[in-house]
Design a protein around this nucleic acid. Structure first.
Lengths: 161, 161
DNA sequence: GATATTTATATTGTGCGCAATATGATTTGA
DNA sequence: TCAAATCATATTGCGCACAATATAAATATC
């Protein structure tokens, strides 16, 4: 075994997280298929069922998705008749994303998805809560790092140099 | 708020896991860029540094990636000169994936990647261990479900009907 | 009030995830 | 021995992740 332990796949947190995340979206597939939604599309619909009439960037923030992902995704949802992508009247740069009647009606058919996921019994409630808590911590800390790294180039006037 | 709590984004374990996983592979990017590797390519190289001269399906199992992902990925790694994709002599269906000298040499340059990731300090060691444990549990249970569902169609002779 | 900067969204290109299907070699069974 | 089933890998097609770039409107600066 020429490979040192810290390079072993079995020791990688990232692989555990990566494969679990992929497996989880695969698990959603059979439940979302009747709704004609992919998993990221489901996330966007969850966001809009909470609050709609919002901008693209608002959806990106709440779903934690990228604009390059969300823009074409919204187009596909619009093509299915679930939402409309209007222009804001005050600010012509902004899009205002609003659910259609069909989009709002779909919520009823998605109601039991979380319940059916829970019924798979892949985690105890305690495990689920703890896993969510740790994943949130990881996300939050990584997001903060990204912000710092991102701001590194754009110098603050008066502080740089 | 027309949306019931179990449909709130803030209550979704899946979003926490999904966004944390994505953020984690983004965090690897600046470290893997000098090695000219993407994150999934890094996983495959980790697998090969442990054991090479193996089949495609062996790599798929150990990295938990799909054959449809791995085949073109291996072609790209071969194009970079990190490995060769030979045919097995005993079984012509099998590919035998072997590292080149350059592929083996790359391991030295990847040695400190796990250490540098740890230095980001996004999780305490205890949190990391617990998160990995829970993610492994989730993956294992979902994988078992997939096997059951997958076997549902292919009837066992003598038991079906 | 013309120019520069910022902001919001869109576009493009590469790689990955994955289901479905194809190809082609091996093994099984009649 | 020959046909059918199985197995390993490859291919195709669509959607997503994300960096880089573009566009175009709003705001700031001079």
């Amino acid at each position: 075994m020429a490979s040192p332990p810290h390079l072993h796949l079995s020791n990688q947190l990232c692989l555990a997280l990566y494969s679990a995340g992929n497996a989880l979206s695969r698990a959603y597939r059979p439940m979302l298929e009747p709704l004609d939604l992919t998993y990221p599309q489901y996330l966007v619909m969850l966001a809009l069922w909470e609050v709609d009439g919002v901008s693209v960037s608002d959806i990106c923030e709440r779903t934690r998705l990228d604009t390059g992902t969300v823009t074409p995704l919204l187009k596909r949802l619009a093509a299915k008749g679930l939402l409309v992508r209007a222009r804001s009247e005050e600010d012509e740069r902004r899009r205002v994303i609003s659910l259609t009647e069909a989009g709002r009606a779909l919520q009823a058919r998605a109601e039991d998805v979380p319940f059916r996921m829970a019924c798979l019994g892949v985690l105890t409630p305690e495990e689920g809560i703890e896993l969510k808590r740790l994943a949130e911590t990881l996300y939050r800390n990584l997001a903060r790092l990204e912000q710092v790294r991102g701001a590194e180039g754009s110098d603050v006037p008066g502080l740089a140099e």
